[in-house]
Nucleic acid binder design. Sequence first.
DNA 1: CTAGGAGCTAGAGCGCTGTCTAGGTCAAGT
DNA 2: ACTTGACCTAGACAGCGCTCTAGCTCCTAG
Lengths: 142, 142
Amino acid sequence: MDAGLSIGQVAERTGLSVHALRFYEREGLLADAVRRESNGRRVYTEDDVEWLDMCIKFRSSGMPLETIRKYTGLVRQGSGNEQERLALLRSHQDSITTQIEDLTECLRVISHKVSIYESHLADGTADCLWVPPAPAESSEAS
Amino acid sequence: MDAGLSIGQVAERTGLSVHALRFYEREGLLADAVRRESNGRRVYTEDDVEWLDMCIKFRSSGMPLETIRKYTGLVRQGSGNEQERLALLRSHQDSITTQIEDLTECLRVISHKVSIYESHLADGTADCLWVPPAPAESSEAS
DNA sequence: CTAGGAGCTAGAGCGCTGTCTAGGTCAAGT
DNA sequence: ACTTGACCTAGACAGCGCTCTAGCTCCTAG
């Protein structure tokens, strides 16, 4: 039932490539070095997969490998550094929040542009474009 | 008053480096090739700066240079292809929306982790961590 | 016995987005 | 005259995050 997973199975479950899995391991992103069968093949546990899922969340929210490595290092050291871990997580939290804000602003500007194109296409007046960017926070302009 | 801007001034105003400005131009991201003084120096207009600001929005929301180049090409061609421009903008809009959703999910998971660390640090029980990821959409676990 | 397929390591290569260097021009200030 | 500083071009280099290759070992099925 939980007999341990091959790298291929983990790849399938996480969506990472086998290359990426080996790469992550080499880069020290894994909580503990993956166990091996007698023949040298990696055997992953469910915990490994969970950890990898976490790494994927970190990565996909823009945390650099370097920082994941640092976090991993803290966890590997064992208890005593929870404040540090927390600080790291909090700062990443902030980073994500900022990213979301920035993206939201971009979305606003681009949506404004889209709506201008839409209305100009609707009433046939599709010239006098290109369109200057949205005016920061006020009502319509053109 | 609007005597045209040097590359240095544009760098300062946009936050791009002069290197990046020249790079973007080489890469064909600018609506129209920047005018030059007799001595070959670039002279930017206010419109150029606005265009660059737009490019910055595109870039910072993850649009690849390639796509910006495509958009620029459409605009350069002049009117007649507004549908295409609109399609491109809409698809980028979607991309941003997806990014925001993904980031929001990451933020949820990480905030969960943070709150677990916080409470364990609060009542002194800061072991039994590391913490598995948040359970998708339900109440607390650990 | 043989062919596939999955795994292994070490290390090269790549796509993207800039950044930096080398070598030069030009204009202004001292 | 000389220095300084902003600008120019062409092209090399860099950082990040993978991805792929070469050359190998196993194991299993036909």
